[in-house]
């Protein structure tokens, strides 16, 4: 029972890291790209945009967060079910809506609030199922199985 509880906690921590890294990374990329401005779709325009992109600190921090997302995503899938992680990750849509309302002071439609409630109930339902329902595979290398 203790291992089951530990598995659940570390899975939820990783899913939380995924959601935070993905949303922060997206927001930073958006902020960085709006500092650069609209990209002209010509050879000169693209190479100019490329130079501005690689020298923009905000974009690099965004890339670090998105790499953190990929690492936490790969890590959690090494032990947890895909059908557990995928819907739980949708919690990010709810977080973004709360951020939009409380930090950006945007107005949000009632339809969107209904969506947020459905996501939260759905994530709670998935969250109380067992995070892992498959056994370790037979083709695992020995160093891993040990």
């Amino acid at each position: 029972m203790a291992t089951e509880r530990r598995l659940r906690i570390k899975t939820l921590v990783m899913v939380f890291a995924m959601v935070v890294c993905a949303n922060t990374g997206d927001l930073l990329l958006k902020r960085g790209m709006s500092q650069i401005g609209a990209v002209q779709l010509s050879m000169a325009g693209l190479s100019h945009a490329f130079r501005l992109t690689v020298s923009n600190g905000t974009i690099w921090v965004g890339i670090i967060f998105l790499s953190g997302f990929m690492l936490s995503y790969m890590t959690v899938l090494s032990w947890a079910d895909y059908s557990y992680v995928m819907p739980a990750g949708a919690f990010g849509y709810a977080v973004l809506t709360f951020l939009a309302v409380f930090i950006l002071h945007e107005s949000v439609s009632s339809r969107r609030w209904v969506g947020v409630v459905l996501i939260c109930v759905g994530v709670l339902l998935v969250g109380q199922t067992k995070p892992r329902t498959t056994e370790a595979r037979a083709d695992l290398p020995k160093e891993v199985a040990a």
């Binding site: 059908s83 819907p87 849509y93 969107r112 209904v114 759905g122 994530v123 339902l125 199922t129």
Partner: peptide, 24 residues
């Protein structure tokens, strides 16, 4: 994977919820 009824219900709610949030 063992997808129980509770997990299916959660997935369907999340799917509908994401559709509503994205539709604005």
């Amino acid at each position: 994977e063992d997808v129980t009824l509770a997990r299916w219900a959660g997935v369907v709610l999340v799917c509908l919820g994401v559709a509503l949030v994205a539709a604005g």
